[in-house]
Design a protein around this nucleic acid. Structure first.
Lengths: 229, 229
DNA sequence: CTGATGTCGACTGTCGACAATTTCTTGACA
DNA sequence: TGTCAAGAAATTGTCGACAGTCGACATCAG
């Protein structure tokens, strides 16, 4: 039945929406660090492990490429993206730009109801802010706050870009191996953002976000540089 | 510097694979309006026409999808993207955010030399600003100015996002069928931007760009709404 | 020992065929 | 005449195969 000689980290699949499922599996494996940056994604090996043909694997890989997790080199194949410290820094710069802009739109236009879901998410953040909880879970909760805030801006384009940036951010943080700050600090530093949004205070919103992301940027890129030779 | 001992070296032999060639062809056809928004991109038909198999066509289509020109519906296939007036408006909002941010970085950090290429491009813009010149050419010249400005910011991420937004913008403008303003006006309105950049004046830069793109946004979305049922 | 050249294996690029799904057609029936 | 269901046609989804390309290693001249 199974091929016992496959060092597969994957389980076989059914028959519907293959491409998306393969993409999700691979994406998960990359984010979780099972596949390390720079390592090769062999179409044939993955296809064999998953019990599908190369075609859907290939399409999934191209999907992941467009979401920034995978790097494609013509005639060589797909590799887990290896993000440089410089790229990471550029990424954070863009996050600041996007999130500040989106937040300002929230300040100006979003109904109060939309802010409630942010409050909930801060609760969720506190709930998982403990050293016992999986680091990925904590990071997802963090990202979810930002995701909701940006969604509240009402421009799906901001959300689309953020989703991509978030995935790459996660990839980098997981490479570092630990969160970029004290778990509790992460939860706390979201509060001023929500407060500023509620007060409809543009200046406070801008500085709260610039501080929050700026600190993360500082911490993460610093750690990240240590891992580069 | 150069290697003088290489008597005759050859051009890199542009031999990109089928996928890229197909993608370029299709992209061109879409931008030029040969394929109208909403129309189906049949894999088999395109493959037969181009004398290739469906595989590279499919991959090319997915590439175009990730660059926003094509819309993919599972089990139904690929269609030329039909952008709504609302999406177009959101798109312009993002362009303002990106371009203002990039320009501010240019103001703060870019060397004067980088601004020269912008001057050249304004010359090019004037050169093609005539009713005799192909409308697509004019638009490309316009976009090229913005592209160079953003490239001067030094953050490739801004450029990547802009490239995508630019393609979609072109698609919309070509749908309208004529430029969004007097050709000469388009050239003129770039001058204040360059002036502000040269003067390293953040406020002037911001307002010049907000005005320029804001006007385009107003004109294009207005025209675009007329075409919607 | 060093650097260039030949060979080999593994992988990607592309293809044609078949299965699954959607869409179109048609005709029965109220 | 309009509706709907069943079958036909067309299109996408997936597959296995083969050819083209790349990188590594062995081989050989200097």
């Amino acid at each position: 039945m199974d091929k016992p000689d496959s060092p597969a980290h994957f389980s076989p699949l059914g028959r519907d929406g293959l491409v998306d499922r393969v993409a999700n599996l691979l994406g998960e494996a990359i984010i979780r660090g099972k596949l390390k940056p720079g390592s090769r994604l062999s179409e044939s090996v993955i296809a064999r492990d998953l019990g599908v043909s190369r075609a859907p694997v290939r399409e999934a890989a191209r999907l992941l490429e467009s979401s920034g997790l995978v790097d494609y080199q013509p005639n060589r194949g797909f590799f887990v993206r290896k993000i440089s410290a410089r790229e990471l820094d550029d990424l954070y710069e863009l996050r600041i730009v996007i999130e500040v802009s989106a937040a300002l739109r929230v300040v100006r236009e979003a109904p109060d109801a939309a802010l409630e879901t942010l409050d909930d998410q801060i609760g969720e953040l506190r709930r998982v802010s403990s050293d016992e909880v999986d680091m990925l879970t904590q990071m997802e909760a963090d990202m979810e706050f930002h995701r909701r805030m940006i969604a509240a801006s009402g421009n799906p384009r901001f959300s689309a870009i953020f989703d991509q940036l978030a995935k790459e951010t996660e990839l980098c943080v997981m490479v570092i191996g630990r969160l970029y700050g004290d778990p509790q600090w992460i939860a706390d530093t979201h509060v001023p953002i929500l407060d500023a949004l509620r007060a409809r205070d543009e200046t406070a919103t801008r500085s709260a976000i610039e501080y929050h992301i700026g600190e993360a940027r500082r911490l993460v890129t610093q750690q990240f540089r240590l891992l580069e030779e």
